[in-house]
Design a protein around this nucleic acid. Structure first.
Length: 800
DNA sequence: CCTCATATACTTTTT
DNA sequence: GTATATGAGG
């Protein structure tokens, strides 16, 4: 009964391969430096590859796999290679294929911890009271379950928010604690009821035949610990183990790896203790720090030659990270030429900071500071918290600077949303084959592989879309019986929806609901008994609600297409906006690091919650940020910032004081030129065209803010001033006159031509305060806020 | 049952 | 300041 029995047979069906290549000159070794080569060739026994930022870690890792395969040391299916993200796994697969010069047949065990555990768990599910077709709950489902349990237990939801409970349980799972192995000391800290609820939650999951992400690992651990035969089997099977981003492993993952590597100890862990930034979700830097103790005789290889950044950038990063205790220690070096120093600049407030970055980006695009013009897609702005992106988005929308945000909402990636969108796409463009393919048998209509193949063939031979092909197939009686009836139903539906979508009198919201109902899609989820079904229905409701902001389905689909696939959608170069966390592993020629203020970065919360440990993780985040830059890195801070609607002043980040002076150039912000404190200097930079009232208002505003900011007494600021004073002033520097956007203050007038990001061009027809009625050329009459409008004349050179 | 108003919280994120 | 969640009221 156990699928475990045929496991071996299944795996061994994959042929031994690549032995013949063993004698050939190995192209995958070309260009590796001695350390990298060491890391590639030390195949036997435990190896720790300490790979600093930009030292060619992935290169070495993939070459190592290629080496294992090419020398015939291991077959593709005997290598266990784990990553944290699907992206990393995909990339590794591609690069191994590239190195081998052909597609690597079946590396079934190259994947994320979770993907590999799913695979294993499906084979052994019955050992933990699951069926092998168990479902995997996402965070939403998990939260809903906890909520139900809390309510059922009659506990006050205010005192025990589901989120908190779910967080606690997640934490426990990260540490490989099952309900009965949670230490008493922990339990007391949270109330024993949390442990009870944890137990109930697990019981509920079992009856639902479901697991959450943490369970994937935990269940496998349980199985390995309770069934030695199974453990021994996999120990023998996975002859070589590779782990990427080892510094990010949590306790459960660590135990899992130790169990599997326990026999032969052929484990190669790659990581960088200085880039451990996921402690808050259970990652244990200790795992990497302890490696040599865990695996006595481990070979430690340091990759220290950096191929990414200039010496100034590396020195700045090293200076900051040096303040951390308990590091394994690495010294990055590079052969690259000196380049620019890291630039440091302070601003009055967050808006000015955004404005300045925008101007810098424009200047870089034209070529400045003796640099080649730098297109926007080579630049990135890395922030600590996603809400910091807003100021930049606002500014970039205003000046029409193309940008993309990484790590946005994942809403549109959900299965049910994609299905629904596919239906909408068919309604607006019936020839959308991808959409047709997606929904032709969703919900199940009895149009299986056979029927779909027939449709494909008919469409292809006639050179028409799938929908038309389906029509032809029906007309030619190529499909009969139940399938034919279902297909003709679907086609009739699409025709009806397409007609309705063209009808201007038809509400697109009603149409959307109608489509989902008539297609039987809503019903499908209503009848679905799995725990995630209610959530999916809720998401669908949300999707329909999101439609309200748009004039028609078409407009909505366009909008979503843009935010979904902005990589491939258009070829306009865009500056990248993302969090520091999301930037790990990436690199950009030009990097801006705004918001370096104490409290924001390092984050106050982080320090409050985790003390010195938290601060050190923030510092590693700073290190990650700086080391993303290849040629130019600019750090900035603002004296004043609006936080939750409240103006707050802040001191420059303590990390700024840790930057080695020799590698930093302090820029004087335009308004502060000449060193005068604040307001006077700022005021002189006011746009000449602004009306006296506006000028006065902004001047007093600045005085008020300046008065509130004690930033000028901070060590960071004083040092900055001192450095600025030391610098010979004769040297012409790039200060631009500050442009105060008068359009943000001045009102529009009736009859004026305006431009809106979403709706395009139009004419103002009515004004009520800051709310304007605008007759848009394409989108019709809409009420919009003035701040979303640009005078049409100014939008002329906006590339949208 | 649905809508509106008030309260509340609110890093970082992958699977 | 904004999004979200809950409770009251229509």
């Amino acid at each position: 009964m156990s699928s475990y029995d045929d496991f071996e047979a299944f795996e061994q069906a994959v042929p031994l391969s690549q032995r013949a290549m063993a004698q050939a000159a190995p192209p995958y070794l070309e260009g590796l430096n001695p350390a990298q080569r060491d890391a590639v060739e030390a195949l036997e026994g435990p190896v720790l590859m300490l790979a600093g930022a930009g030292t060619g870690k992935t290169r070495a890792l993939t070459a190592r796999i290629a080496h294992l395969l090419a020398t015939g040391t291991a077959r593709p299916n005997e290598i266990l290679a784990v990553t944290f993200t699907n992206k990393a796994a995909r990339e590794m697969k591609e690069r191994v294929s590239g190195l081998m010069g052909h597609t690597v047949e079946g590396m079934p065990w190259l994947g994320t911890f979770h993907a590999i555990c799913v695979k294993l768990l499906r084979r052994h599910a019955e050992l933990v009271d699951l069926k092998s077709n168990f479902t995997i709950l996402d965070t939403d489902d998990q939260l809903r379950l906890f909520k139900q349990l809390i309510q059922a237990a009659g506990i006050d939801e205010k005192r025990w928010p589901p989120r908190m409970l779910s967080g606690i349980v997640d934490n426990w799972k990260n540490r490989a604690w099952t309900p009965d192995s949670v230490p008493a000391s922990e339990a007391n800290a949270f109330d024993r009821r949390a442990v009870e609820l944890y137990g109930q939650y697990q019981a509920r999951l079992r009856t639902l035949n479901a697991v959450d992400f943490g369970d994937l690992l935990l269940h496998m651990l349980t199985i390995f610990q309770a069934h030695d035969d199974i453990l021994q089997h996999y120990r023998r099977w996975f002859r070589y183990i590779l782990v990427d981003e080892y510094q990010d492993t949590n306790v459960a993952q660590y135990m899992w790896l130790r169990l599997l590597a326990g026999g032969h100890k052929n484990i190669c862990c790659v990581g960088d203790d200085d880039q451990s930034i996921y402690g808050w979700r259970g990652a244990e830097v200790g795992n990497i720090l302890r490696f040599e103790t865990d695996f006595p005789g481990a070979k430690v290889i340091r990759l220290e030659q950096n191929y990414r950044s200039t010496p100034h950038i590396l020195a700045a990063a090293s200076g900051v990270i040096a303040a951390n205790k308990g590091r394994l220690g690495k010294t990055l070096w590079t052969e690259s030429e000196e380049g620019e120093k890291v630039r440091l600049i302070g601003h009055w407030d967050g808006e000015e900071e955004a404005r300045w970055v925008g101007e810098e980006l424009e200047a870089l695009g034209h070529g400045t500071r003796g640099m080649e013009p730098v297109p926007l897609d080579r630049c990135a702005i890395l922030v600590r918290a996603s809400h910091q992106m807003r100021a930049f988005e606002d500014r970039f929308l205003t000046i029409g600077l193309p940008y993309r945000v990484i790590g946005g909402p994942r809403f549109y990636e959900r299965m049910e949303i994609r299905d629904a969108m596919a239906y909408f796409r068919l309604a607006t463009s019936p020839d959308d084959d991808l959409a047709f393919e997606r929904i032709v048998n969703t919900p199940k209509r009895g149009l299986g592989d056979k029927a779909q193949q027939k449709i494909q063939v008919t469409a292809r031979t006639n050179g028409v879309s799938l929908l038309e092909g389906a029509r032809l197939l029906l007309a030619s009686k190529g499909l009969t019986g139940k399938g034919a009836a279902a297909l003709s139903d679907l086609i009739a539906g699409v025709d009806r929806w397409a007609r309705a979508a063209r009808d201007p009198g038809q509400s697109h919201i009603e149409l959307a609901e109608q489509i989902l109902d008539e297609a039987g899609y809503t019903l499908m989820w209503q009848n679905d008994k799995t725990p995630e079904a209610p959530g999916r229905l809720e998401n669908l409701k949300e999707l329909v609600k999101a439609l309200e902001e748009f004039e028609n389905l078409q407009g909505f689909l366009e909008h979503v297409a843009l935010i979904m696939d902005n990589e491939a959608e258009d070829d306009v170069a865009k500056v990248t906006l993302m969090t520091l966390h999301a930037a790990k592993g990436l690199e950009f020629p030009v990097v801006f690091l705004p918001g370096w203020e104490d409290g924001l970065f390092p984050s106050q919360r982080s320090m409050d919650e985790s003390g010195l440990k938290g601060l050190e993780e923030e510092r590693r985040l700073a290190y990650v940020g700086i080391t993303r830059a290849e040629r130019l890195c600019t750090i900035s801070f603002a004296a004043n910032r609006r936080v939750y609607g409240q103006w707050q002043s802040a001191l420059p980040s303590r990390f700024i004081d840790e930057l080695p002076e020799a590698h930093v150039e302090v820029l004087t912000p335009p308004g502060l030129y000449g060193g005068g404190y604040g307001a006077a200097g700022m005021a002189s930079g006011l746009a000449a065209g602004a009306s006296p009232e506006i000028m006065e208002r902004q001047r007093s505003d600045l005085h008020e803010r300046a008065a509130r900011a004690d930033v000028y007494n901070s060590p960071g600021w004083r040092r900055m001033q001192a450095r600025a004073a030391e610098r010979p002033m004769s040297q012409p520097r790039e200060t631009r006159t500050m442009v105060i956007d008068a359009e943000a203050v001045s009102a529009f007038s009736v009859g004026e031509r305006v431009f809106h990001q979403k709706f395009g061009y139009g004419e103002v027809t009515d004004i009520e305060g800051d709310k304007l009625a605008v007759a848009f050329d394409k989108a019709g009459v809409k009420k919009v806020l003035a701040k979303f409008l640009l005078p049409a004349a100014q939008a002329g050179d906006v590339p949208f």
